[in-house]
Simulated scan of single mutants.
Amino acid sequence: MISRAVNDEDPDRLYTVTGGRSRAAEADLDLVTLIVSEADPVPGMQSEYVKILHICRFPTAVVELSSELSLPVSVVKILLADLLAGGAVSARHPSAASRPGAELPDADFLKKVLVGLQNL
């Protein structure tokens, strides 16, 4: 369903929405990065930014935003990079748990959980 919407999308509109950019500037975002609003929309803000800020009042994945906005993920990443740079949103990377100092569950415990689930 999304591919049809993207294929029918006017390329001029996408060019306008992104300000002519084709890549996000230094934004390390993947499809499952959670985005959270840190500010309210301001008068005169681009409508896509306003929608993102409203949707992200609760943590929302980049891929979900793309679906909600009916825009390609690449375009959403560009918009998010702008909002991140302005401090209007924050990004929570799922890989944060693998950072040094973060505690991970014991491998034996995870195996027991898996066996338990398979036995259901």
Rank of each mutant, 00 (worst) to 15 (best):
V113W: 02
I2R: 01
N119D: 15
L120P: 04
S47R: 10
L53F: 14
T16Y: 10
A5N: 13
L31E: 15
R99E: 15
L31M: 11
Q118P: 00
A107S: 09
A39C: 06
S90D: 11
D108L: 12
V63H: 05
L110V: 15
C56N: 08
S98A: 09
T18W: 03
N119H: 14
L120E: 15
T16K: 07
A27S: 12
A25L: 08
D12K: 06
S66W: 12
M1F: 04
R4Q: 04
L114E: 04
G86S: 14
M45T: 13
D40V: 07
N7P: 00
Y15G: 02
A24I: 02
T16R: 06
I2F: 02
T16G: 03
T18H: 02
I52A: 12
C56G: 05
A102M: 15
P100E: 10
S22I: 11
D12Q: 10
Q118N: 05
L65F: 10
D108C: 10
E64P: 01
L34W: 00
L79K: 01
P59Y: 00
A107I: 09
L83P: 01
A85V: 06
L79I: 00
G44C: 15
A107K: 06
V32E: 01
V62L: 14
L71E: 01
D30H: 14
G101H: 05
L29P: 05
V76F: 09
A81Y: 03
A97N: 06
L114T: 01
S22E: 10
S90C: 12
V63N: 05
E48G: 07
S22K: 11
A102N: 13
V50M: 06
P43L: 11
A97R: 06
S98C: 08
G116Y: 09
T33E: 03
T33D: 02
S67G: 13
P100D: 12
R13T: 08
L83D: 02
V63T: 07
Y15T: 06
G20Q: 09
V6I: 05
V113L: 13
V50K: 09
L31P: 00
L65W: 11
N119C: 13
L104R: 13
A27G: 11
R99N: 11
S67F: 06
R99Q: 14
G86D: 12
P100N: 07
A96P: 00
E103A: 14
D10G: 01
T60V: 15
T33G: 06
V32I: 02
F109C: 07
Y49R: 08
E48V: 09
R13I: 04
S67D: 11
L53D: 13
A5R: 15
S66V: 13
N7Q: 00
F58S: 06
R57D: 08
D82Y: 02
T33M: 01
V32G: 02
P105I: 04
I2E: 04
G116C: 11
S98Y: 07
R4H: 04
V62G: 10
S3I: 08
V73T: 14
V75Y: 00
D108A: 14
S74H: 00
L29R: 07
V115W: 12
C56M: 04
R21V: 07
S66K: 11
T18L: 08
G19E: 14
A88W: 02
G19Y: 11
V89S: 01
D10C: 00
K77R: 13
H93Q: 09
S66F: 11
